[in-house]
Structure formats: C-alpha cells, structure tokens
Amino acid sequence: MIKTFTENDLVRFLYDEVNEDERDEIRESLLTDIQLQNKITELKRVMESLDAFVMKAPKEAVSRILYASKNLQSA
C-alpha cells in the first residue's frame, strides 16, 4: 500500500522532527516514490542555500570574547 504524506509531514521530516516510525515510513517511500523524491530534493536544496547564508563573525569580537573568558573568574 502506498503511504501518502502531507506537505507538513515532509517539512517535519526535513527538520528532523518526526518520530522513528514516521522517519522509516518516509525513507521507505523515498525509495520508490519519484514525486516524493523530487519534493524532498527541492526543499532540501533551499535549506542548504539557507545554511550557506551564514555571515562570518568579526575576528575582533571573537578575540574580545576569548579575552573576557580568560579574565572572568569562576564562582
């Protein structure tokens, strides 16, 4: 029997918020369901693009944080 998933199920799957049973079901369906594969691939690509949108923290600020850490005493 072909299991169908809602679009929201797929978003939860991509963000790793499904339970183990749901994860297994989606993974199993992905083996044969080309439409599902395409949907997941498309969304995943956008997520990867968002992952790449990460700005570099300024080095000066990082140095100041490390300096503060070394000079703040523990309780």
């Binding site: 923290a57 300024p58 000066e60 600020a61 100041r64 944080i65 503060a68 850490s69 703040l72 005493q73 523990s74 309780a75």
Partner: peptide, 18 residues
C-alpha cells in the same frame, strides 16, 4: 557585533557562576 560579544560574555558569566 556588539550584541554578539554581549551574548557570549553573558553566557560566560552564567557558566562560570555555576
């Protein structure tokens, strides 16, 4: 940049104070 510094220093204080 200022806020990031403030965030980590606040975290450091919290951690170091137990």
């Amino acid at each position: 940049e200022d806020l990031m510094q403030e965030v980590f220093i606040k975290a450091i204080r919290t951690i170091k104070s137990g």
